[in-house]
Design a protein around this nucleic acid. Structure first.
Length: 694
DNA sequence: CGGTCACGC
DNA sequence: GCGTGACCG
């Protein structure tokens, strides 16, 4: 039971509970270690024998089905049949392909062909992907679902006619669509979904026929849908953005494969550092709780009974098992006050519920918002009441977040070369942005000094440096471009600091007056609110000002940038009329709720509409530029593109070439996409790690 | 498995 | 506004 590798948690739990039962029985007999070993051996033998029998049965079943139904044997391609399939594909006007780990179904003009990649599935010769390579080098157009996924599993058709995965995303803008939903949506054909099948038999145990059926149904859908999708894309002005997305697939694939190097030793060190800091904070927090409780006792604001009651509540949350809780209950009832405060004050700081009990029942802090212990509440307790514990809890949360989300998680995901390979999801956002997961490398901390330390762990390999180039205020420039607001355009023409300018506008400062740091940062927040379509309410709570003041800032902003106001009105009108909005490159986003009878929903939809156009256009630009960069840099070993973080691209570049490449890439980023009214500007940074490259 | 929180742009 | 992920109950 020590070794748990390779077992998922559910299976592990099952095994553990089984073992528990076994041990209980053994307990009643009281046996020696020697005897136990014998039993162990016996169990092992029986177990493996039983398993063998089961497997044999499965095989027999497969054979039976194969024999009985003479399962379209001609459709199953074996090693000898690959040549035949090749010529069939060659003659075919198009091919559709659907694959998973177990097999591939090809649909040609002649019909369905199944290649099993699952060695246990009764195919005499195991077919490797290598053997299939000739099939993918043909000119015949392939209709596929998820080209990047195919690339990842080693399938790379030369001529992709249509990727339904991408096409569907652009047409419907659905981000979490399952293939099954898509088919039912389009055809009304009810497929047995993967999850339904899994309920009956695990995918590994799916027999040949079931697997064939499963893959074939999907491939057939692709076969009949390719042309339809392409027509729809064209009819909906989405062909241009579709081509960009299709070109991008391979770029993303290469970036994922390349990965980014992390310094494992550094992470280990930082992990230890964080652990020490957390270890220091925890006792501090507990000491403050103890102090608070003692104070309350002395002031007769808290009774011993109340303390015991609160501790029991905590115990209920801490000890899930009844038996453990009963022991704890006993302890709490019997222990004296000294013991309670010194040893039984156990709670989980990360649990809002437990923290609530501690802060408001035991320490009797004044409630700000019920028993909520969110950031705002803790900040009030810290700033208004001077509660040290609030500051410490905030600090604890920050460190715990860094530790669990980054410092502990990232090293677990490296390959044998210490490189991290994220997955860029191309269909994961409503606006057209990419998202990144496993790990998410688009949310690596950057704001706080502690967070920046994480970036230091992202490094370049020997002889190389990281090159990070980001667009300067791309969304505001996009806003200037599509609003054609004269003030904004002029500001960028003169290369002015836009947050500075907005501060001057909001506070009616003259040219020669200095803009204070506070005013600039306030203006910056207001600028972002406009891009994000933030409400006056949101702005007021972020700036900690009154709703009236926030409204005042927003209305001043609009009067100073009338073009922006006009643009928002125009976008909202379009959304109301069409039910969708488009980016500069015609990417669509459907806006649900824009014509709702609920005022709040309408307001939210309006903000969505405005934000989508700006955010989406910026996303389009990045994608276009990434494709262009890939063309220029393809095949070069002295530079690789590693990451995209919405408005920033990160490369690993040979040290002696870095200045040359910095210049080249900056230029490509600034000139590939030409806007009519503003120039795009990119900032270059470089260094041995990601925090230096800033 | 949904809610809360925290990280990014 | 748009994301991913950790943690809790």
């Amino acid at each position: 039971m020590e070794t748990t590798e390779g077992l998922d948690s559910q299976r592990q739990a099952e095994l553990e509970s089984a073992l528990e039962k076994i041990l209980k029985v053994i307990d009643t007999v009281s046996i020696t270690t020697e005897e136990f070993k014998i039993i162990e051996k016996k169990i092992g033998e029986n177990f493996s024998e039983k398993k063998k029998k089961e497997e044999k049965k499965e095989e027999d079943k497969d054979t039976e089905i194969l024999e009985k139904k003479k399962l379209k044997r001609s459709n199953i391609v074996d090693l000898d049949g690959i040549k035949k399939l090749k010529s069939e594909i060659k003659k075919s006007a198009q091919v559709a392909l659907f694959a998973n780990e177990s097999g591939i179904v090809f649909i040609t003009d002649k019909g369905s062909r199944y290649v099993s990649l699952n060695p246990s599935a009764l195919i005499t010769t195991e077919i490797t992907l290598d053997a299939l390579k000739p099939l993918f080098q043909l000119d015949t157009p392939y209709v596929v679902y998820g080209y990047k996924k195919l690339l990842k599993s080693g399938i790379d058709p030369k001529n992709i006619k249509c990727d339904i995965f991408i096409g569907n995303y652009l047409l419907t803008n659905h981000t979490k669509e399952e293939f099954e939903d898509l088919v039912m949506d389009r055809d009304g054909e009810i497929l047995k979904t993967q999850s339904e099948i899994l309920k009956e038999r695990s995918i590994k145990k799916m027999n040949l026929e079931e697997m064939h059926e499963f893959l074939e149904a999907r491939a057939k859908f692709l076969y009949r849908s390719g042309d339809k999708f392409l027509e729809e894309l064209k009819a909906d002005k989405l062909k241009k953005i579709y081509n960009i997305e299709m070109d991008l697939v391979k770029v993303l694939y290469k970036m994922e494969e390349e990965g980014i190097l992390i310094d494992l030793d550094y992470f280990k060190e930082y992990q230890a550092e964080l652990a020490v800091k957390l270890d220091e904070i925890i006792p501090q927090i507990k000491a403050e709780v103890k102090k608070g409780v003692e104070h309350n006792l002395n002031m007769m604001e808290l009774t011993e009974g109340e303390i015991r009651e609160s501790l029991l509540q905590l115990g209920k949350l801490n000890y899930k098992k009844k038996s453990e809780y009963t022991v704890y209950e006993q302890k709490i009832e019997e222990a004296d006050l000294e013991e309670l405060l010194n040893n039984q004050l156990v709670f989980n700081i990360a649990s809002p519920k437990q923290l609530g009990i501690v802060l408001f029942q035991l320490m009797k802090l004044s409630k700000v918002k019920k028993e909520s212990v969110g950031v705002e509440v803790l900040e009030v307790l810290r700033d208004r009441d001077g509660e040290m514990i609030a500051e410490n809890i905030l600090e604890y949360r920050k460190l715990a977040k860094l530790q669990s989300t980054y410092v502990e998680a990232l090293p677990k995901l490296i390959d044998e070369n210490s490189r991290l390979h994220t997955t860029f999801n191309q269909t994961g956002t409503a606006t057209g942005r990419l998202s990144s997961s496993n790990p998410n490398l688009q949310n690596i901390p950057v704001k706080t000094p502690e967070g920046i330390k994480i970036r230091q762990g992202f490094v370049a390999k020997d002889g190389y440096k990281l090159l990070a180039i980001d667009y300067s205020q791309i969304e505001l420039r996009v806003l200037a471009e599509i609003s054609k607001d004269e003030t904004l355009i002029l500001a960028y023409e003169q290369d002015k600091d836009l947050h500075d300018l907005t501060a001057r506008k909001l506070f009616s400062l003259s040219e020669d007056e200095e803009v204070s740091r506070e005013k600039r940062s306030l203006a910056k927040i207001v600028n972002f609110s406009i891009i994000y379509g933030k409400t006056a309410f949101g702005l007021s709570s972020e700036l900690k000002i009154s709703l009236g003041e926030a409204k005042e800032y927003i209305s001043r902003y609009f009067s100073q940038y009338p073009g922006v106001k006009a643009l928002e009105t125009k976008i909202i009108e379009e959304a109301k009329h069409d039910g969708f909005v488009r980016t500069l490159y015609d990417r669509k986003r459907t806006i649900d709720g824009i014509n709702s009878s609920n005022k709040n929903i309408v307001k939210q939809a309006e903000r969505m509409a405005v934000n989508s156009v700006i955010q989406g256009t910026a996303a389009d630009i990045l994608k276009i530029v990434m494709v262009e960069l890939n063309k220029k840099l393809e095949g070069r070993e002295d530079i690789k593109m590693n990451l995209q973080v919405h408005d920033e691209l990160i490369f690993e570049v040979k040290e002696e070439k870095i200045k040359e490449y910095a210049k080249l890439i900056k230029n490509i980023m600034e000139t590939t996409v030409k806007l009519d009214h503003v120039k795009l500007k990119a900032n270059v940074a470089m260094g041995y790690n990601w925090s230096e490259a800033k």
